[in-house]
Amino acid sequence: MELLCLEMDTVIRARPDPNLLYDERVLQSLLTIEERFLPQCSYFKCVQKDIQPFMRRMVATWMLEVCEEQKCEEEVFPLAMNYLDRFLAVVPTRKCNLQLLGAVCMFLASKLKETRPLTAEKLCIYTDNSIKPQELLEWELVVLGKLKWNLAAVTPNDFIEHIMRKLPLPKEKLALIRKHVQTFIALCATDFNFAMYPPSMIATGSFGAAICGLQLDNGDQSLWGDNLTDLLAKITNTEVDCLKACQEQIERVLVSSLREGRRQQQQQQQEQAGPRSKALDELDQSSTPTDVRDIDL
């Protein structure tokens, strides 16, 4: 017999724990405590002078890209954005320090959620070395102090499995739906309009948008329009009207960011191809979808 010691470089993860995921009390506890981790105010109005909403979007997009490139766990990015918003809600910050703050928040969220966290050095490289690892470590302490070391915040991702198991979804579609919901949650985190929403509402709204967008609502009657909204609202005790508004907002953000991406692409192509392709681009632009159902997800 051979004795093998295998130390592989793969991430070892725990199996989904039915005691946590199939217990109603866990969901109720999440709903009870989630408000504690929301930013205290709409900080662009009352705290910040130097930074503006579009700068938050810039740093958020950069953070999302880093997390994707480094294949971070899904909840790292939304959690990091929660830290960023909570910090900005209490500390007036200059825009030249915003990227440092973003890096620190990713550093913390990654340490909390991952078995192999992002390193300070790597994060500094992603800022194009505009910050040093030493500064990152120092500001880690500052951010921790301002967050009162409350790092285990509730994120929309915490609700995914709880909501999913209560919906009559076809088994073979679960992975696809989960992925889409995660994508919508990340998209919401890049947009400041969602920063003050309870995580459960963002999660529920993302489910609505994903199921509707994937047009899974043809078969089961309980997944049709209003039925779905009612069902979702019941699961997380959300007001039906709020949920509807949230879902529509998510769909609008999705459409507008895809449209913006298209515009940028065309701009780049135009710069490369010169003025001749202009007419073609205009033709293209008119076919940009304006409804989430028109997008071929």
Binding site: M55, M58, V59, T61, W62, L64, E65, V66, E68, E69, K95, C96, N97, L98, Q99, L100, I125, Y126, T127, D128, S130, I131, E135, T183, A186, L187, T190, L254, S257, L258, E260, G261, R262, Q264, Q265
Partner: peptide
């Protein structure tokens, strides 16, 4: 969505020197 949101390489300095 990611390509729609992003612009250029991930490694970048967003707001100038610190």
């Amino acid at each position: 969505i990611l390509t729609a949101l992003s612009n250029g390489p991930t490694r970048r300095n967003l707001f100038g020197p610190v």
